[in-house]
């Protein structure tokens, strides 16, 4: 069977110890689509994304990225993905150019194409002036632009964005959103996780995860029509489907590190 979708999962499951983080998720994301994955904290968004990025092996079910099985062809899958994480995954003691050069090498760009690809990414992120400055001197918005440019450097076919506009000021948010929209216009497939429902409302389709299960999939219009009706927003639908209960979670190792970094961190960074 040939699978042409950008993403396809069949009965995809994963558990951490006793916790069923993802159970029997079957999902299709079409090529060229702009897809938003919604869900309360701990719903399984990160687990699903990590499975697609081949960071975790599936416990059950299967998943394909552009026809490649994530369990059997992880390297092929990785080459097709561009990823922007929620927190910056940059070396902030290096310059933007140096960070981009590392990416170019990691993705196996031939030497003669590297410099040009890096320059193009710098220009795309509008960071020409700051390109030779250490990333630690950058604002949050500049880092996010750099990461987005980096994720595109190796011409991926599927872009995965984990809460791309979180923590940005309205200007930064608008700017980044315009960049993402321009990609969409060029036919890029985008899978985005978000808590920002107005942003999700502009996507082609939305999937809502809750407690590891995919509880709704459809265009924002369809979901509103099915669950809220006239005058409702996606937020109303989201609350109707997932409830009002708070989803408190313990701080993860990453949260602890991020807060340590905010308090000043240490020289070993």
């Amino acid at each position: 069977m040939t699978r042409k979708n950008a993403v396809e999962t069949a009965g995809l499951s994963h558990r951490y110890g006793d916790v069923q983080a993802l159970s029997e998720v079957s999902l299709e994301i079409y090529e060229g689509e702009f897809f938003a994955l919604l869900g309360p904290n701990g719903a399984g968004k990160t687990t699903l994304v990590n499975l697609l990025m081949t960071l975790l092996p599936p416990d059950g079910g299967q998943a394909w990225v552009l026809g490649h099985d994530v369990a059997k062809q992880p390297e092929a899958v990785r080459r097709l993905l561009g990823v922007v994480f929620q927190d910056p995954a940059l070396d902030d003691r290096l310059t933007a150019v140096e960070n981009l050069e590392i990416h170019a090498v990691l993705y196996g760009l031939p030497r003669r194409r590297r410099a040009e690809a890096v320059q193009r990414a710098v220009a795309w992120a509008a960071l020409e002036e700051a390109a030779k400055r250490l990333v630690r001197t950058y604002s949050g918005g500049m880092k996010r632009r750099l990461e987005l440019a980096r994720a595109l450097l190796h011409d991926p076919r599927l872009l995965i964005l984990d809460e791309p506009t979180i923590g940005l000021d309205p200007q930064g948010r608008l700017n980044l959103w315009e960049r993402i929209s321009s990609l969409r216009a060029n036919g890029m497939t985008v899978l985005m996780t978000t808590h920002n429902l107005p942003e999700a409302e502009t996507c082609d389709r939305v999937g809502i995860l809750d407690r590891g299960k995919l509880i709704a999939v459809g265009s924002p219009g369809e979901l509103i029509a099915a669950n809220g009706g006239e005058g409702a927003t996606l937020e109303d639908v989201f609350i109707a489907l997932t409830g009002r209960q708070l989803r408190d979670e313990n701080a993860t190792a990453r949260d602890l590190m991020v807060s340590f970094a905010r308090r000043g961190g240490e020289h070993t960074r």
């Binding site: 990785r78 080459r79 590392i102 990691l106 196996g108 990453r254 070993t268």
Partner: peptide, 21 residues
């Protein structure tokens, strides 16, 4: 070596581990 702990949570290592390298 210990810088890896940083690197893995809030640094470049996350970018490295999802690459095909």
């Amino acid at each position: 070596a210990i810088a890896l702990i940083w690197d893995r949570q809030v640094g470049l290592l996350r970018e490295v581990v999802i690459s095909p390298a």
